[in-house]
Design a protein around this nucleic acid. Structure first.
Lengths: 238, 238
DNA sequence: GTTTGTGAAGTATTTCACAGCC
DNA sequence: GGCTGTGAAATACTTCACAAAC
């Protein structure tokens, strides 16, 4: 997976860069739908609220996809990105925890069109197991490893209560899962060969209130000076 | 909101630092529950998978909360952080979009204990408006500004389809909302005095597959060398 | 004229390492 | 002995700016 540039020097791609690639891909898909065939880093930057230089630099980690004086071919660049990200295949995903949140995840229509198929769902609660949710029979956690290996599942989504999250993660790792998306509001430990990312809306809200000032309805002034960097923050163009 | 250090020099607190504070707070709350009264940056770091130096540096933006040779008082540090983040009050939150996802958000039990009360819900679909969900009557979007101003709401959660997201955001901004948490898979524009953060599980999955390699069941090797930085990634201690 | 790809420069963020204190 | 707070050093990331290509 280490990328070699034109000059055959091994270059570690920063994770921040990898995290931006899907956003480029999405913008390109929208452009395709809009009928565009070519796009410049400038145009892409306007759409994504980031600098053209950053887009060019990011893409240059992986190859030379553009044409000077013209820009990037929308279709071929999106094909390249899909290739780089490993998205030109289906990924089967296991869901652990089929409570309120887990059910919302199973029912979320955004995964399938992008090639992520929730192929198995597990819960430890015997009242849930055996139930069918969105065409999936909830299995007991005891069957987790068997099913994950049988279906060659490498990605898991965890939506269990915080106190049991680490145990579930340990089990998933043991069964061979290599990427985990957790919705549990807790820190997770995993060996370095397993990628873990957490989605936690409360943490997001709790950091945004910092900028609101705690006095109700007062002091809208001092916020303007502060500018965000990176992440999912929006950016002003210079 | 600009913070003055001991020496009265104005210091801009980096947003990455602000984003980590809620994680410290959560760890401290867990420690309290476990009966701990004092904690060192070392112990906190182990719990949160980050370096002690980073924790100390982060906290030092806001004051001197620790005691040499001893560590931090768990209770008073968590009180300080709550103060800094503006969390020692209730925040009323507006929800826009009461489809499948919006309903899951209304029903999510994690907000209230942290002081975030979903106080109003809106939808443009007349079949939804008037309905009661979790004790909240869904209002038409036409009433959005009135209600937001009447309830002095400064935070909104947006769970509408991508194509209408920008329009909803513009409206919210116009009504005086200053922080927006969006679940829509699309880039959002907002003036600099409005904080915007997006939660997008598909983007997360799409960047994780990069590290999996696209060959099914093969090449588990090259991943180990790559190390994450910041964000919600876990970190190995040196 | 336009736009890419990229070293070099400029920022931002993290980590080191140690004086000072308990 | 242990631990914080913090300048300084190291590293990571972004932006600049321009030669080369169309």
């Amino acid at each position: 997976m280490t990328v070699y540039s034109t000059h055959q020097r091994a270059v570690e791609v920063p994770d921040v860069v990898v995290q931006r690639l899907p956003r480029y891909l999405r913008a390109l898909d929208q452009l395709t739908q809009g009928g565009a065939t070519v796009v410049s880093s400038q145009q892409l930057g306007e759409r994504l609220q980031m600098t053209p230089a950053q887009i060019r630099k990011d893409l240059s980690y992986f190859g030379r996809f553009g044409k000077q004086g013209q820009g990037y071919n929308v279709l071929s660049l999106s094909e390249e990105l899909r290739q780089i990200l490993g998205l030109n295949r289906q990924w089967r995903v296991a869901l652990v925890g089929v409570g309120r949140l887990g059910r919302a995840i199973i029912g979320y229509p955004g995964f399938a069109p992008e090639g992520f198929q929730v192929a198995a769902a597990f819960d430890s609660n015997p009242t849930h197991t055996g139930q069918e949710v969105a065409g999936l029979v909830i299995q007991p956690v005891a069957e987790l490893c068997d099913t994950i290996r049988r279906l060659d599942i490498q990605i898991a989504i965890v939506a269990v209560p915080a106190p049991v999250t680490q145990k579930v993660v340990d089990l998933l790792v043991e069964c061979g899962v290599r990427a985990i998306l957790s919705y549990a509001p807790t820190t997770i430990q995993a060996p370095p060969h397993v990628r873990v990312r957490t989605i936690d809306p409360v943490l997001v809200l709790q950091s945004m209130t910092y900028y609101l000032g705690s006095v109700a309805g007062a002091s809208p002034a001092p916020v303007a000076a502060r500018r965000p960097r990176g992440g999912t923050e929006r950016r002003g163009l210079p």
